[in-house]
Nucleic acid binder design. Structure first.
Length: 765
DNA sequence: ATTAAACGTA
């Protein structure tokens, strides 16, 4: 028995204590249950004696004592008179033996007795031995021993044997052994399905490069074993797993794989493709996403709306209207039916650009309005998007109308978002009471408010001078278990900063931290801005450092705010410090930075530095704006140098082509009037009329003061009429000047009619 | 898997 296949002594001991045999019919059932098909050559044409030979041999082998009738066995299997039975018969016979031990014994017998050392014969018998071993506990160890010995005997592996071994080793995390089996396998038998299993095993173990290497061979244009849909499934799902092991595969690589697969007409499924498209889009590679989608379309991949939707969303965000339209046209051409999400994207996009009427048209189209044959039922999101769009342009009443329409549609009840949009709409329209009523209504309707509802109302109240109401509401909600978040605190902090209650703003910041609510960058920005403007630069710097500790970096706005604050405190060293920090962070000074500095230097009388900065700003490719010129004009005025101020004013509109605005005119008119140059001021008023720049209350106030000095009554009357014409509201300063002046000169009647004009228009509004 | 709402801007 020197040529016999032996196993380790430990192994053979185990083999002797095998479980009672698995009934044959069960084993065949198990084979049918395996995922991959059998890879045997088709069963030989039924010979009359074929099945009977199998049965006879099995019967012979079933003897309870271990002595087989070897002569008879030999006679049946290797007859001298007729051709030997087909190898497939040996597979069947071995399968029908009850145990690995028996199968192995039989194998050894065949190996020792076969007249021709016919390898398929041995390979097939061995295959069945493996099958038996694979059903035992600890099968991987047994199989490994069997495999090693078969390898040393140079018995080629059959396709099924290799499949079984690779899969079994793979399940046991023995990737190297799986790989070894594959490498032992004759190259002509390295079929696609075997490669699939190995690739799966490699991916699961994180051997990404080995998997991709194997895959690459298959993906070659004329590969002998090209990928099939199963390859695609294995690779695509491995690449999208969340708990991936091994090195990350970057998106470019994935895109390359997808297109190579597509060349073999293997396409990813819709869900997977959609994920890839949105991942590409989210990382800013919309162009790549576009290429992938169109590449697949060209090669005949079946495309669903979802993948197109993902791309449409990104195109919308990037404002690529043209490509959005192209994609929509292509969808139509390729018969990709738009779904409710497609419509949602379009409606949202139109709403975000305030094109609400067009959004409403699209909405009617989905309802079959233009018999376009779409008929896609709008969902809650569609309605909410439209309602929000309407509210954002001040058409909240129409938004309410849509809610009614929602209620009439099945499965489309208004939800928290619906109410939030409406509440925000009413808040923005300064109708806080109506917003509160909607809040009560949603509670009555059993629609639960969430933190967004809370924030919307808190912010609405804050922005309409009801800070205390906002705090009260917040406390009330907290009492009901609705916690605030960073957004809530930002709204309140900003409001308290605006009324210069810095203590309270800081208190809220601490309260937020104590409440365990993690601040976002905007809370920090808000607080820094509030503190800087209030001149509390030490505290602003403190918050800045806290912000950096929290892992946020200041943006250009925060830097500008701080620079402005330090300049106003005349702390130039600190301002420069900020500029340096900005530079280190790779943030370039922008127009606002320059304007801030120019304003500071000119206000402190350092006009040469101011002008130098303006030159530098232009050199950096930045354009001086009205704010820049305004800063200089304002400073020259404060400095009493009205001639220079007027020179810059003329220069800005003629040479620099920067049209002056109301602020510029106000500065000049105010200064001219103070200097008693009321004629010149009046001519500027005419200039405004010519240039179409609207005067505001400040403009008129300045003029009235100047005219009062001169006691030019008729001019004042003229301007009072003009003020009414412009629907420009007088404020308490206007009233103070006019009351004092006109009563002194006995023109109370004129004053009365002036005031009445406003009372009428106020009541009309 | 793809569509909706709230906060800061010198």
């Amino acid at each position: 028995m020197s040529a016999a296949l032996t196993v380790s002594s430990k192994q053979s001991k185990l083999l002797r204590f095998l479980r009672p045999q698995t009934p044959p019919n069960l084993s065949s059932l198990l084979r049918h249950l395996s995922a991959e098909p059998d890879h045997h050559p088709p069963a030989p044409p039924p010979q009359n004696d074929s099945s009977s030979v199998v049965n006879l041999v099995v019967e012979l082998l079933q003897t309870t004592d271990n002595d087989w009738n070897e002569d008879k066995l030999h006679q049946l299997l290797f007859p001298t008179t007729s051709p030997p039975p087909p190898p497939h018969n040996l597979l069947q016979i071995t399968r029908l033996l009850g145990s690995t031990a028996k199968a192995l014994k039989f194998f050894n017998w065949v190996q020792a007795n076969s007249p021709c050392q016919d390898s398929p014969l041995l390979s097939f018998t061995l295959e069945a031995v493996f099958e038996h071993a694979s059903r035992e506990p600890n099968s991987h160890n047994k199989l490994l021993d069997l495999f090693k010995t078969s390898k040393s005997h140079k018995i080629p592996l059959s396709v099924n044997a290799a499949t079984l071994l690779i899969r079994c080793f793979g399940r046991a995390q023995m990737v190297d052994e799986s790989f070894l089996v594959y490498n032992e396998l004759c190259p002509s038998r390295r079929l696609t399905h075997i490669r699939n299993i190995l690739i799966d095993v490699l991916f699961r173990k994180g051997r990404v490069d080995d998997a991709l290497h194997l895959l690459d061979e298959m993906l070659q244009p004329k590969a002998e074993f090209p990928p099939n849909s199963n390859t695609g499934h294995i690779v695509f799902s491995a690449l999208s797993k969340r708990d991936k092991v091994g090195r990350a595969v970057d998106e470019e690589e994935i895109v390359g794989l997808v297109s190579k697969f597509a060349e073999h007409e293997v396409f990813p499924n819709s869900i997977w493709l959609t994920q890839l498209i949105s991942r590409l889009c989210r990382s800013g590679r919309t162009d790549r996403a576009w290429d992938v989608l169109h590449g697949l379309m060209k090669l005949g991949g079946v495309m669903e709306a979802a993948s197109c939707n993902a791309l449409l969303t990104a195109l919308g965000r990037a404002r690529e209207f043209k490509r959005m339209n192209t994609l929509l046209a292509e969808m139509k051409e390729m018969d990709i039916q738009p779904n409710v999400v497609t419509f949602g994207i379009l409606i949202n996009h139109l709403c975000k650009f305030r094109r609400v009427d067009e959004a409403l048209e699209v909405f009617e189209k989905m309802n079959g309005g233009e018999s376009n044959g779409f008929l896609v039922e709008p969902d809650v999101i569609t309605y909410n998007t439209l309602i929000d769009g309407l509210c954002k342009v001040g058409r909240q009443e129409e938004g309410l109308g849509l809610v009614e329409r929602m209620r009439s549609q099945p499965r489309c009840m208004p939800n928290t978002v619906t109410y939030n949009c409406l509440i925000d709409g009413y808040c923005k329209a300064s109708m806080i009471e109506a917003a509160r009523e909607l809040f009560d209504q949603m509670n009555k309707d059993g629609v639960p408010p969430n933190v967004v509802t809370l924030n919307t109302l808190v912010d609405g109240m804050c922005k309409h001078g009801r800070i205390n109401g906002a705090v009260e509401f917040f406390n009330e909600m907290q009492g009901k278990g609705l916690k605030g978040n960073a957004v809530t605190y930002t709204a309140l902090i900003r409001a308290f900063c605006n009324v210069n209650n810095i203590e309270k703003a800081m208190e809220l910041f601490d309260e937020m931290l104590e409440a365990g609510c993690s601040p976002d960058a905007i809370v920090y920005y808000t607080l820094i801005s509030g503190l800087s403007q209030a001149g509390k630069l030490d505290r602003a710097s403190f918050v800045l450092s806290k912000m950096k500790e929290a892992g946020f970096s200041p943006d250009i706005v925060s830097f500008n705010v701080l620079i402005n604050g330090f300049c106003r405190k005349n702390k130039l060293d600190e301002a420069y410090e900020m500029l340096k920090e900005m530079e280190n962070a790779g943030i370039k000074p922008d127009g606002v930075t320059y304007n801030t500095l120019i304003s500071h230097f000119s206000k402190t009388g350092d006009f040469s530095t101011a002008h130098r900065l303006m030159k530098k700003m232009v050199k950096e490719g930045l354009v001086p704006t009205v704010v820049t010129y305004g800063a200089l004009i304002h400073a020259y005025c404060l400095n009493g140098n009205l001639d220079e101020a007027m020179k810059i004013f003329r220069d800005m509109s003629s040479t620099s082509k920067v049209p002056p605005n109301t602020v510029i005119y106000n500065i000049l008119i105010n200064s001219l009037c103070r200097k008693n140059q009321v004629d010149l001021a009046l001519s500027l008023m005419d200039d405004m009329k010519v240039k179409g720049v609207k005067p505001n209350t400040n403009t008129f106030n300045a003029m009235f003061k100047g005219l009062q000095e001169k006691n030019w009554l008729s001019k004042a009357f003229e301007l009072m009429d003009r003020m009414t014409e412009h629907a420009c509201n007088p404020d308490y300063i206007t009233m103070e000047i006019l009351t004092e002046w006109l009563s002194a000169v006995g023109e109370t009647a004129k004053l009365k009619s002036f005031v009445q004009g406003y009372e009428v228009s106020a009541s009309a509004a």
